[in-house]
Design a protein around this nucleic acid. Structure first.
Lengths: 213, 213, 213, 213
DNA sequence: AATGAATGAGAATTCATTCAT
DNA sequence: TATGAATGAATTCTCATTCAT
């Protein structure tokens, strides 16, 4: 079951890679339009402009597409975040509280951007994580990467930070930011985005840093 | 209104109410065992000890059972929380920070207990909220109730609280606590429960209250 | 795999038994017309005058129908043979060679009749036995019954029979008669049926009985 | 003629003949491992070390490979039998009963060896003969050759043989020996091989020859 | 009201064969 | 000639819901 037949090719030729890409793009669109569960492999193939059977030359099933897309999602989001990060904050270790707040703001902004990439897909992915063991495993791995990054990051700010348990703090930081942004994007809390994000920022800052401005 | 056939009766007779109850209990069990999606109506009926067709005398479709169950879930959780609340904290307005931290601790504990009622069902419900518009609507209503309660509650603590936007604070409080507990219950973060909950408590206290002990 | 889901009902009610019978009759016809492999479950349902899904209420898959049919085939054939047997030969132990030859003739005739019931189905069943482990197992059981019967039978003729190894003789008797008849029915040997059956009779008689007339 | 595209070349060049051979060897292996029906053309090509499409340069379809293999099977078996035959029995016409029994023993042994070449393949071929008209035709032709040989052969033993209808006898001889050996090889009758083969020999001898030793 | 058989639209997947490169 | 990606009809099986009894 786990290590199944794996009949799907690993494409190397340009044409194959393109077809694989076509499938992923179709899935990206369709999952965003109708959601993962309401999209079937036939539609997927049709939208990709290929035959039903061709789909199975590239993926063993729909879930594999979902997982690949989730991976890309994570990758795109974290790459975007990281690249922006060094532009905005720079490589220098933060020296003052202002930088601390800037940092928090930046983290929130980055996560928000990542959610904005494809909100429906993000939502579907979140559901899939809840419903499927395999998907959950992958998402955990990816989350781990982000958290690890946050840990090393927070450690650079050590002198500013009043929290002892950096690891727990990083997890907290990631989870609550992600959750609040998720709520804003999807569930449309009956409250203005700015108010909620403002409080989120305040909360994190008051938690992380010795004095709150 | 227009489209809904609504053939399911609202049972008044004792026997009917019992049958309805049997269905809900069966669903509670099965959704917990295999999840909402992997349970089919035949199993549901069988477990409830009724005929397949009889199910539709009590519910218009499978989703309705899910929604009803979710409602009960919320109700059970919040009733439990509220009843415990007044026993522990009392009706008196809090007068010191100690009470503040106690309050936070209590909220966390209550939420945790609500998650513990039926973790699998909670997970499935969460997924369903993401995937289904109707379910989402109901959950919003229920969330609203909780948030409203938290707002009135926080207002009683006004003099201890440094936050201006009580409404946003209540939402934050609810969302992040719920999320962190959810992660602990389901995803098994690679961190000890106590550490994470400790930080959560700290974070909320440092955010809500003027001075952190 | 072996002891699978078994979702098919075991029908008790008259209506259910009728439907099951309709499916088996449809299969009997279709397997005879187009063969087992070229018939699919949709056709089977259609011919039976039921919906596709209904089929799966009675059988878990096509193979189950095949096995059931094979069982009936065996049963019908052996019941026919046995009932005829006592009418023709009577219950008395044979006393002369004439009875011996009569017996052989009768066995051949019975087997021939069983093949004639539904030649195509018989052919398909034979193929299925070769190709499918489960089917092979069942056919072995059924064959065993026939062979056991032949053994007890030959033992009644002991004083006429020159063969020591009655068990081996019974198996031989069954297998070669079946094979020759099968060839006549299906493969249409380029030889007249009577000639071949005549030789078969001679061969068995000269093998079994002390003197050949 | 009309419908057959016959695009597969008849290879003459050494390299082409080698490729064809590679395909046949792959099929020989795979059909023996998994059977004809469970082997697909992709596997076949892969095992042969060629591209999927290339397969159709050498054979018009999968069935053709099966037929070719069956032909080789027959050829290999009969060649083996024949070559051994003249070594063991010699060209001289048999002069005594001992030679008669020797002959029978030899025929049985030869058939047994032919079954032993590749039992699984033999089984699959037998099924294919039952299921496919074309395959059946070819097998009939090949069987005819064997039977013809047996006829000429038995005629050489005329003075020892009590049977009038030599043709029918030859067919009988072939069919029953083949069947019994087939049962021994594949179906594993619940009886020791030696017992069954011993009876087979006895039966044929008592049938063919005037006096049984 | 209860029963449980019947429905039938779907969905996933396979694979012999073709065809563009 | 060789390649291997593409084809798409075909097949199996599921399940929420309906309906005759």
């Amino acid at each position: 079951m786990t290590a199944s037949k794996n009949k799907a090719r690993i494409p190397v030729q340009k044409r194959s890679i393109e077809t694989r890409e076509k499938i992923l793009n179709a899935a990206w669109e369709l999952f965003a339009e109708k959601g993962y569960f309401k999209t079937n492999t036939n539609e997927l193939a049709e939208r990709a402009g290929i035959a039903t059977g061709s789909f199975y030359g590239y993926f063993n099933n729909k879930k594999e597409v979902g997982i690949e897309l989730m991976r890309r999602f994570y990758k795109e989001a974290s790459e975007k975040a990281l690249s922006n990060f060094y532009i905005q904050i720079g490589n220098n270790v933060a020296e003052n509280l202002d930088t601390g707040r800037k940092l928090v703001r930046f983290i929130i902004k980055s996560l928000k951007e990542s959610h904005a990439i494809n909100p429906m897909l993000h939502k579907e992915t979140t559901a899939l994580i809840l419903l499927d063991e395999d998907v959950r495993k992958i998402s955990k791995e990816e989350d781990k990467k982000i958290i690890t990054f946050l840990i090393t990051f927070l450690q650079q700010y050590k002198q500013l930070i009043r929290v002892d348990d950096i690891e727990a703090a990083a997890i907290m930081l990631f989870r609550i930011s992600d959750e609040i942004i998720h709520r804003i994007m999807i569930n449309k809390e009956e409250i203005e985005e700015e108010r909620l994000l403002g409080e989120l920022e305040d909360m994190i800052c008051s938690y992380l840093f010795i004095t709150v401005t």
